[in-house]
Each structure stands twice: as C-alpha cells, then as structure tokens.
C-alpha cells in the first residue's frame, strides 16, 4: 500500500464527500444536534468557574462587558463532536461536515432563547452568520433584589435593537447576558410589571420627582426636567406611615415653586396618583464606537 500525499488527502476527502454519488445519501444532520450545539455556544452548562477563572476578575458590585471568543466556542464544539469517534471513516465524516455543522449551529443562536420562552414560531433562525457575540457579566445586589430586571442592547444611537441571545442568572447574584453583535448602548430596566406607588429615599427622607399635571407649560404625566424633588411628610419615620394630607401640601408647594401648579388648580387623588406613581428605574450604559 502506498503512502498518500498528506497535503492532498483532506482535499480528496472533501471533494469525494462533496460528490453527489457519494455524499448525496449522507443523512442530514439532525436538528437535535445543531440545537444542542447552539445552546452549547451560548455557554449553556459551562461552569461559572470556567467563565470567570479568578473571583477577582468579577468582584462584587461590578459589571464586565466582553466579547465572546469565537475560537473558544469552536474548541467547545470540537470537544462535543469528538465523542464516539471510532474509526478513521468517522474522522473523515467529521472533518468534511465540520464547517457546515458549526455554521448551522451558529445560525440557530437567536432561536434558542425564543424556543425557551415558547416562541419557536415567531422568531426564525436567520441565515446570516453572526460575526461577533458580545455580552456582560453583572455581579450585584440588583440581580438578587430585582429578579425581573430587563436588559436591552442597541447597536447604534438610532435604537436598532440587538437580539438578546441569553439572559440568565448563573448564580444568585451574577447575571450573564449575551447579545448578537456589538452594542453601543445597554439598558438595565427595573422590572416594570409592578408600576406602582412609591417613594425615593434621599438622605433618609422620602421624596418623589415631580411630574407635570397639565397646568402651566408642563404636560401631564411627564417628569419636570431638570428633576425637581417633592418632599413627602412622614407621620412617623420609624413606622414608615406617610402623612398623606401633609405630603399633599408639601407637593403642592414644590409644584407651585416649579411653576407647574398654582392656587386654584385642582389637586385631588388623581393629581396625587400622578406624582406618586413610581416609574421603573432605567440605567443606561453608553459608549461610542
């Protein structure tokens, strides 16, 4: 048996497998495999200590944005596909179909999260191969304190949203988010499902930021800018019981100073509700590319 020139061999394998009479009967890669690989690429199951090898890289109360290393992800796929290689023919099949397998898995990334949310039908896997996957690791009390926190990433100032590939708590206080593409703005939004009445503690005193009431030049329901604090009155600071009628007088005085209310304009429970409705906190991280 003669030795085959190494340099030409891989080409021959590929060309032979590319021929219809040989590879036409190759069964299609099952969806379950590419689905699984897509989850793997999104670091599903990768232990936290392998994402953050040193605790010092992610201290408490920190936020780290990062790029996903595509080479690292390919090695992850290499390892996963390496199981059960029992013959050189298997190796040939693996080598010949490797690139297609990887590309097909990557094209499914955007449907992984959708599928988990039960939205398989609405979001189709795109053909375009992702160029860059980015993400963040947030280690903070907000992760444990606000379980429904929303995260949105935008590619440019025009607000083109990036697909959220993954948003999971990997630990009680560590959140991992992955985006398709490089964001120029990432927004962290306090869970809005509880739009409710509340106050903002400022130096131990409860305040609200005043909103317009439709009197004067201030449109109703829009926060007066620059922000004007409306102090509230507590009946007893120890119990947190508010003196509502006292607070109403205090809000009226602050609104009057801000020019958004004047004596004679009504101030009823409706106006009070507008002032006390607490908007969801929004923290934006922005940078220019």
């Amino acid at each position: 048996m003669t030795a085959i020139k190494p340099s030409s061999h891989i080409t021959e394998i590929k060309s032979a497998l590319a021929r219809a009479d040989v590879s036409g009967t190759l069964p299609e890669l099952p969806k379950s495999i590419t689905d699984w690989l897509a989850q793997l690429v999104l670091l599903d199951g990768v232990p936290l200590s392998y994402l953050v090898p040193e605790p010092d890289l992610l201290p408490t109360e920190s936020l780290r944005f990062f790029y996903l290393d595509s080479n690292w992800l390919r090695r992850l796929i290499d390892g996963a596909l390496s199981i059960g290689l029992s013959s050189s023919l298997d190796v040939g099949v693996l080598l010949a179909t490797y690139e297609d397998t990887v590309l097909e898995s990557l094209s499914k990334l955007s449907s992984v999260r959708a599928a988990r949310r039960g939205l398989t039908a609405t979001i189709e896997a795109t053909d375009e191969t992702p160029t860059t996957i980015t993400g963040f690791l947030l280690r903070s009390r907000v992760v444990s304190g606000w379980p429904g926190m929303e995260v949105a990433a935008y590619a440019d100032p025009n607000g083109r949203p990036l697909t959220l590939l993954r948003l999971d708590r990997v630990n009680s206080d560590i959140m991992l988010g992955l985006f398709m593409g490089v964001p120029s703005e990432v927004r962290f939004l306090e869970p809005p499902e509880g739009l409710h009445f509340g106050v903002i503690p400022q130096a131990g005193e409860p305040i609200v930021y005043l909103r317009g009431l439709g009197y004067g030049d201030d449109p109703a329901g829009i926060q007066i800018l620059p922000a004007v604090a409306g102090p509230l009155v507590e009946r007893d600071a120890a119990t947190g019981v508010l003196n509502i009628s006292g607070s109403v007088d205090s809000l009226k005085a602050a609104l009057k100073t801000a020019g958004a209310w004047s004596e004679g304009d009504p101030f009823t429970s409706a106006e009070f509700a507008i002032q006390m409705t607490r908007g969801a906190g929004l923290q934006i991280f922005q940078w220019s590319s």
Binding site: T60, E61, S62, L63, R64, S140, V142, W146, G281, F285
Partner: peptide, 16 residues
C-alpha cells in the same frame, strides 16, 4: 435603590 446601586457600580467593583 435600583438606580443608586447601578450608579455605584463604577466605584465599587467597576464597570469595564
């Protein structure tokens, strides 16, 4: 406060 904690991130653990 949510916003206070988020705004404190650069001073505590840092934001990169």
């Amino acid at each position: 406060n949510f916003i206070e904690i988020m705004q404190a991130l650069p001073d505590t653990g840092g934001v990169s």
